[in-house]
Amino acid sequence: MIEVKDVYFTYPNNVEALKGVSLNIRKGDFVAIMGQNGAGKTTLVKHFNGLLKPTKGTVTVNGVDTREESVAKLSRGIGFVFQNPDNQLFCETVEEEVAFALRNFGFEDKIIQKRVEWAINLLGLAKHRQSSPFMLSGGERKRVALASVLAWNPDVVILDEPTIGQDYQQKEKLRQFIVQLNAQGKTVVVVTHDVEFVAECNPRVVLMAQGEIVVDGDAKHVLTNAKLVTEASIVPPQISQIFMGLTDLGLPFDIIDVYEARDILLDFLGGDL
């Protein structure tokens, strides 16, 4: 679906943000791109919808080279939800905001109406439909931004740092929503440095450091690998930290989930009693 081949990217101020990145995202994948701030995560995903074009190498989306297609065309298939909803909200009502992209893409009025309705209900914004997006709380604004992208039903949804500034409950809601989207067959790409969030989602993890991919594998293996995690300067999830200290008792160390941890500990104790 999205194929990144040996991509290099240098910003106009000569910062080399990507140094030979290759990555393949298949339909229905759930990928978390992780790493420290400045590791090149956002730069990489901005290549997926053509906001950035590789300095060297190629990015193809559904077989089309992103260099030959406008951002608007690519965005039909790839929805990008930016980190800060305030960078995109500008309409007088939530409804207008959600309809904006649909109008840009030239949908018919009837379909626009239907889609807006659907997206607003999907994100539980029905009672705010006539409110000004600026009057809503931070979490609600985030949901409006999300609705305004999901409205045109893109095949791939990219979320840039969705958990920043969100409290625990909001994160939990968001996590359930993302997992549900993915279960319905949508390809989801999440850019984040929130380890605990990823540990609970259990997606495929692409770990980046200094413009390169350090490792690409499932969350359980990547996040519990002390060496890789240090290399990418992230902190392992708390449960795996605990188990890293218990390895000399013969316990496995690749545990990230609380309940899995409990079961293993109970097993261990039960076996001995």
Binding site: D167, Y168, Q169, K171, E172, E196, P237, Q238, I239, I242, V258, Y259, A261, R262, L265, L266
Partner: peptide
């Protein structure tokens, strides 16, 4: 809905 540390959650689960 406070984000209780996972260490405490494990304690509670146990």
């Amino acid at each position: 809905g406070v984000g209780i540390p996972k260490a405490t959650r494990l304690y509670q689960a146990l």
